Simulated scan of single mutants.
Amino acid sequence: MQTDDVAAGGRRERKKRETRQALAAAALRLAVEKGPDNVTVEEISEAADVSVRTFFNYFPHKEHAILGRDPEDLERALTRLRETPAEYSPLTTMRLLITRTLAEFEDEQGDRARQVGLIFESPALLSQFVLLGAEDERALSAELAERMGAPPGAIAPALIVSTVIAAIRVSAEKLKQAGPELAGRTLSSLVDEGFLMLAHGLDPDYDPHALSRIDQEGQS
């Protein structure tokens, strides 16, 4: 009986994954065809052959479906972060963590690339993308802080995670606007360049005392 229960549970989980994937695939296909702002939950549900009620069991609104939001993605990322060998530095750990994500973005025929294209078409989609990114950033920062043994309120873990995300975003934007100077470059190569800059310091000549000196000069 116990074996049957486990098997039934496995089938239910598989069915849930299949339904979520079907809804996300339908949402993305319809968004590409009609534009993300012109797609309705009813159309997505019909295309996936489920009820509207079932749709809302998986996604709170159509933007999450178009973005293919799956809570398990974040959990898998957090697990990979925890399982990265302890000898790797925080920045090295983050670079290893985003390897799969970069590969997905570089696949021009893949879902990630199409989702990125749609984000810039729809303010609503962009807004949800930013909100979801902020949620993921907080979770990753907390996990990295624990890994680093950082004290409560430490800036370093959150700053590392946010600058890594910024490095990906800036690299993607530069590649999208690429001129001849970036011919042959890939997203990964630009991100790696950004990581080296972060590792070596963006501005070694930064003077933390400059502001106070300027204030003193203004008062004299």
Score class of each variant (00 low, 15 high):
Ser189His: 00
Glu18Phe: 00
Ile119Val: 13
Gln216Trp: 13
Ala24Glu: 13
Gly35Ile: 08
Gly218Glu: 12
Ile98Asp: 02
Glu72Cys: 07
Gln177Asp: 14
Glu43Val: 02
Leu144Phe: 05
Ala134Met: 13
Arg76Cys: 05
Gly133Ala: 08
Met94Arg: 00
Val50Asn: 02
Leu125Ile: 06
Val39His: 09
Glu106Phe: 05
Ala65Thr: 08
Arg213Tyr: 07
Ser220Lys: 11
Leu28Asp: 09
Pro152Tyr: 08
Arg14Gly: 14
Gln115Leu: 08
Ala124Arg: 09
Thr84Trp: 03
Thr92Tyr: 08
His64Gly: 02
Ser212Met: 12
Ser162Asn: 03
Gln115Gly: 06
Ala113Thr: 14
Ala86Phe: 03
Ala25Met: 08
Arg169Pro: 00
Pro71Tyr: 05
Phe195Lys: 01
Leu190Gly: 09
Ala156Val: 15
Glu46Met: 15
Gly153Phe: 07
Glu121Arg: 02
Ile160Val: 11
Gly110Cys: 02
Asp205Pro: 10
Thr79Leu: 12
Thr79Trp: 09
Thr40Gln: 05
Thr163Phe: 15
Leu131Trp: 07
Val41Ile: 12
Gly184Met: 06
Ala77Val: 09
Arg138Asp: 00
Tyr58Gly: 02
Ala199Thr: 12
Glu104Gln: 10
Gln2Cys: 12
Leu97His: 04
Leu132Lys: 14
Leu132Arg: 15
Thr101Cys: 07
Lys16Met: 15
Asp136Cys: 11
Ala172Trp: 05
Glu121Trp: 00
Val164Tyr: 00
Leu126Asn: 12
Glu181Gln: 09
Gln21Asn: 12
Val130Asp: 03
Ile155Asp: 12
Asp70Arg: 06
Ser189Asn: 03
Glu173Thr: 12
Glu46Asp: 14
Ala103Val: 11
Arg100Thr: 02
Lys176Leu: 06
Met94Lys: 00
Ala145Val: 10
Glu173Asn: 12
Val116Arg: 14
Thr99Met: 08
Leu118Pro: 04
Leu132Glu: 03
Ile165Asp: 00
Ile44Ser: 10
Ile168Ala: 06
Ile66Val: 10
Phe105Thr: 01
Ala7Val: 14
Ala150Gln: 06
Ala139Thr: 06
Phe59Leu: 02
Gln177Lys: 12
Glu75Pro: 10
Leu175Arg: 00
Ala77Asn: 12
Pro152Asp: 06
Arg185Thr: 15
